[in-house]
Computed example of a mutant assay.
Amino acid sequence: MRILLVEDDPAQLEPLYAALSQAGHIVDGVEDGETAQWLLSQKEYDLLILDWLLPRVSGLSLCQQFRQAGKTAPVLLLTAKDTTADKVTGLDAGADDYLVKPTDIMELLARVRALGRRSPLWQGDVLRMADLQLHLNSLAVERSNTIVQLSTREFQLLEYFFRHPRQVLTRDQIEEALWEWGTEPESNAVTTLVRRLRQRLQSINTADWIETIYGMGYRLNPPAEEDRGVRSEGLGVSD
């Protein structure tokens, strides 16, 4: 998932950012509400993690503005406010969950997984498409009982394809989705990443599911259910 993490204390932001990134998420981490406000106007996120008390624009205000804009992605509030009245205020502002500081990283990751289960593709801790399974906790892909371990970036790309099946995704869209705010990938980064992912998928005969749409980008195009039994497998696909 792509996550916006907003926490004004660097001592808390950095370990949360590291833990979420190691779990395979693409994380934009910022320290003030104004920057977060700008990012929300520029990017789409699967999950927001907001500290309640932030410089310039509070996390509570960000949550309210996000909902008023018609956005439905889950919001998790982090705060030292722990009274029932505070929790009600946060939930009424549009938050989906509420975590009291100091933040326990294992609990945070569990709540992130729980909020991620809202995806229609989700089945347990696995995303499924046809007979291909993406294991979100172990950064692995499985087909016919064969498991292939992916690098973090390979996993992020395949998850992005999973969440946009049969949709043509341009290189710019992939860069925007996979690289954190403020980083600049090399010009051939997407092409190289797609090639590496296809190489990984060859061992489970799904490399050809990733199609190159010349002049446009790439598409994950799994076989229709009725065609799976006769589909040719193991075909190489060029970049």
Rank of each mutant, 00 (worst) to 15 (best):
P102M: 10
R195G: 03
I204W: 01
R143L: 03
N188V: 00
S41I: 00
A11I: 03
P55F: 11
K71W: 07
H164P: 00
Y218S: 03
R56I: 13
L139T: 00
F162P: 03
W122T: 09
R111G: 06
R56C: 10
V57L: 13
A11V: 09
R113S: 10
A73H: 15
A36D: 07
A85V: 08
E176W: 04
N188W: 07
V75G: 09
M216T: 14
A19K: 10
L157C: 03
G59F: 06
L99Q: 15
D125P: 05
L53W: 13
R2E: 12
E14W: 08
R118V: 15
D86Y: 09
D125I: 04
D172A: 13
T84F: 07
A69H: 13
P165A: 07
E180L: 06
R200H: 04
P165F: 04
L16N: 02
R166H: 11
P165I: 06
M1F: 07
S238F: 07
L127P: 04
I204A: 00
V57R: 10
E225P: 09
Y98E: 08
G94Y: 05
E154I: 01
R163G: 00
A18E: 15
V194E: 04
P10E: 03
L20K: 03
L220Q: 06
M129F: 05
A177V: 06
S61A: 12
A36R: 04
R171L: 10
E180N: 05
D208M: 08
L20Y: 10
R143A: 02
L201Y: 02
D28T: 08
G116V: 04
L220P: 02
P222F: 02
S187H: 08
L78D: 02
E31V: 10
N221K: 15
R2S: 10
M106S: 15
S187R: 14
V30P: 12
G234V: 04
S203V: 15
Q173F: 07
A130P: 13
R198C: 06
Q12D: 11
S58K: 08
T183L: 09
D131V: 01
K101G: 03
A114M: 11
L139D: 00
E225N: 14
L150S: 01
L47D: 04
V190W: 10
F155Q: 01
R200C: 02
V237G: 14
K43E: 15
L60S: 08
A114E: 07
F155T: 01
A130M: 15
S187N: 12
A18I: 14
L139H: 02
G94R: 05
S41H: 03
L235R: 13
L4K: 10
R219A: 15
A18D: 14
R200Q: 13
T79G: 10
I147A: 01
P15V: 12
V237R: 15
E180W: 02
A73V: 11
L158E: 03
R228G: 06
Q22V: 08
A80I: 05
P15G: 11
M1K: 05
Y98A: 09
A93D: 08
E225R: 15
T212L: 13
R196G: 01
L78T: 01
V100G: 04
F155D: 01
R171C: 12
L115G: 04
